[in-house]
Computed example of a mutant assay.
Amino acid sequence: MIGNRIKRARKAAGMSLRALADEVGVSHTSLNKFEHGTLTPSSAQLIMLGRALGVRTEYLLRPERTEVELEEVEYRKHPKTPRKLLDRITATVLDQAERWMELLDLYPTPPIKQMVVPSSVSPSITRYEQLEEVADGLRLEWGLGENPIPDLIDTLESRGLLVIPVEVPEGVRFDGLAGQVGERHIIVVSKSIPGDRQRLTLAHELAHRLLAGHIAENLNEETACTRLAGALLLPRQAVCDHLGNHRNALEWRELYLLKHEFGVSMAAALFRAEQSGVITESLKKRLFREFYTRGWGMKEPGDPVNPEHSLLFEHLVYRALSEDFIGQSKAAELLGISASQFQENRSLTEIGVDATAHQ
C-alpha cells in the first residue's frame, strides 16, 4: 500500500528513483524495495519522502480503499417517494462516493479543491430578501457576473462539490439530495428530470450546503433554499434588464425566452419577476392561475431545457491512467464498465459513444 503511493507520488513529481533516493538520503535499492513493498520505510524516512514529494505523510499511509458514509443528508423529493427507492438511491450514491474517494486517493495532491462557504453568505439570515444579496455576492466571488450559467454542474465541481447523477425509474419523483462524505460535499441529482428542474435542484442543494446553520428559526429552510437557488440562476438585475423595472403585464413568450436563456422553468421565471419587484404579487397570482389553467403546471410549452452531465469523474480516471497511477483494469473498474468497453472508449473506436454514458 505505502509502496504504491510512493511510486504514484514520485511519478506525479516527475522524479526518477535515483533522484528521489538522493533527495531522501537512502539507497536506490532501498527506495526500489519501498515501492515494491518488500521493505517498509521508517517514520523518519516517511517524513522525508513526504517533504521530497510535496505530499503529506497521511497520504502515504492512507488505506487503498476507505469505507464511506453519507452524512448530513438533505433530500429534495416528492412526499410519496418510496422509502425503498431512497435506500436504493443512497446505496448507489455510496458506491459512487466510494469510487470517488478511491480515485481522489490516487492523487498525491488533491486534483480538485475543497468547497469553501463564500464570505458573501451572511452568518445570520433573518429575512428572505437577504438571499438576493447572498446570490449576488456568490456570483461576484465565483466570477459569474450577471450572465446565464451555461454549465451549472461544471461550475459546482470547479468549486469543490462532487456531483453524482443517478438513474431514477420512470414515474418516480426524486430530484436530488445533498450530503457529505468525509470532508467532501456531494450533490446527487436525477438524470431523468428536465434540465430546468435539474438545475434548480442543483442550486437548491447547493443552498442547503451554504446556508446550513445560517438560517434564523423564523424562516423556512426549504423556502430559503429555493429563494437562493432562483436568485443564483436568474439574478434580480438580469430580470430587470430583460423585463424592465416595473410591468403591469407580461407576455408568456418573455418567460419562455428567459427559460431557455437562463436554464430555469417558466414558473421559476415568473416567481423571480415578482421577487425582483418587476410585477406585483397580485399579478403573479393572476398569471399563475392562467398558467395552471393552460396545463403548464404539469408540462411547460415548447422544447425542454436539456439536462446537464458530469464528466469530471471520467476525466480524472483517464488522467490517473495517463499519470500511471492506475492500469487499464482499475480504470475500467472505477468507471463501472467492462475491460473491452473501456478499451474501445479509450481508443475511440466507437467515435459516437456518449461521453456521459457511464456517469
Rank of each mutant, 00 (worst) to 15 (best):
T155P: 11
W100S: 06
G145H: 00
T92E: 13
D154V: 13
L156D: 00
V68A: 06
L138H: 01
R56Y: 10
R62I: 11
E98K: 01
P63R: 03
M115K: 08
Q96W: 15
P148Q: 11
K80E: 03
P148L: 00
G145M: 02
T57P: 02
E141Y: 00
A135T: 07
L70H: 00
E67D: 15
P79S: 04
T90H: 12
G54L: 08
P118D: 13
V116F: 02
L140Y: 04
K113M: 14
S124M: 04
L103P: 05
L144E: 09
E71P: 15
D154W: 07
L152D: 01
R83L: 10
E141G: 01
L86C: 08
V93L: 05
E98S: 03
T81S: 07
R83W: 08
K80L: 02
V93F: 05
P150I: 15
A91D: 04
Q130I: 01
P118N: 10
L60M: 10
V73Y: 04
L61W: 09
P150G: 12
L156Y: 01
L103H: 05
K77R: 11
P150S: 14
R56T: 14
G143M: 10
S119M: 01
V117Q: 09
D105I: 00
P123L: 05
L152C: 08
L61G: 09
E71F: 13
V73E: 08
H78P: 08
R139N: 03
E69T: 10
E64A: 07
R88L: 13
R127G: 14
D105N: 09
T92S: 13
Q114L: 09
L61H: 11
V73P: 06
V93Y: 00
D87H: 05
E69I: 06
T81A: 06
L138Q: 00
G145R: 02
V117K: 15
R76L: 15
I153T: 09
L140P: 05
L85S: 07
L103M: 04
K113S: 12
I112F: 05
E74I: 15
T66R: 09
R65N: 11
K77F: 04
L156V: 03
R65E: 14
R139M: 10
E69K: 12
K113R: 13
R56Q: 15
G143C: 10
L103K: 02
V134N: 09
M101F: 03
T126L: 11
E132T: 14
V134M: 06
I89E: 01
L156G: 02
E67T: 15
Q96A: 15
Q96E: 15
G145P: 05
R99N: 05
T126F: 11
